[in-house]
Design a protein around this nucleic acid. Sequence first.
DNA 1: TATTGTTATACTCTATAACTATA
DNA 2: TATAGTTATAGAGTATAACAATA
Lengths: 152, 152
Amino acid sequence: MPETPGAGTDRLMELLSVSLGAYYGDFTVAAAAEGLTASQGKTLSVLRRGPSAMRALATTLACDASNMTGIIDRLEKRSLVRREPSPVDRRVKNVLLTADGERAVDAIRAGMRTTLAGLETLDDADRDVLAGLLERVFAVPDAEPVTGGRTP
Amino acid sequence: MPETPGAGTDRLMELLSVSLGAYYGDFTVAAAAEGLTASQGKTLSVLRRGPSAMRALATTLACDASNMTGIIDRLEKRSLVRREPSPVDRRVKNVLLTADGERAVDAIRAGMRTTLAGLETLDDADRDVLAGLLERVFAVPDAEPVTGGRTP
DNA sequence: TATTGTTATACTCTATAACTATA
DNA sequence: TATAGTTATAGAGTATAACAATA
């Protein structure tokens, strides 16, 4: 039972700030090597998981829907993504990655050498532990208490 | 001995990407609550560790020196930072946080409720483990092999 | 000569508001 | 009426190139 909630939190917040800052810097440099901005790279990364409507994309990227138009415009001009009208709702447009877009995402990931090198220093067990902790802290692990579940 | 280097790396990279997105989103919202952009908030956070010359600040924030002029201009206009000529080199200007600037940084950190809540789910032991792993992966643990060090 | 900070420029990102075409 | 995507606009971030002051 931690007596002082938030006691060791300050140090971890600082460490997260530095760590994720390093990750973000690495990502930005790798994206720039492909001639892409961080936002463009992030957009492509999200689309790597599958097609998405403009609105959903904006929600995922936590930006206003009006931004997506410009970002997707520029990516489409470079043939990295493609807009496609939804078959079920004529208002929505789905965005999908082209083959070139997939290649770009992979190139960015492969170009994150600092981060990759850092991860290589961990063995499989450590990776599992880190993954588990990150999931608990950030993935908000279906935190809702199951209806009717026990509350000791 | 990991037979397949990079095997479990993909999943971790994906997880880091999601974690960073969550952290950064939380930070951006908390900064916006103070009327600050993410870049401004990041700049203030860096200055929380101590004063810094314009050039050093740009290096830390991984952006061009010319950007800092505008960012610091806007922060200074709001009395969150102050420029001060260096006593030792008349070319350099040191930037320091004002009392209001310190308050703003603290408010941002306190406003990152999602991240703080996530960290609260960890007990002290877990926090130590996470901190240790992050340091190993990102802090670039003086990776250079000590000259003359053993290479088993 | 090299470096620090700044300016000028151009492009991208970002949110707000208003518009259109659907639903 | 409500929603998806777009446009217009304005402010902020970003890199490049050029500059003055200083080292």
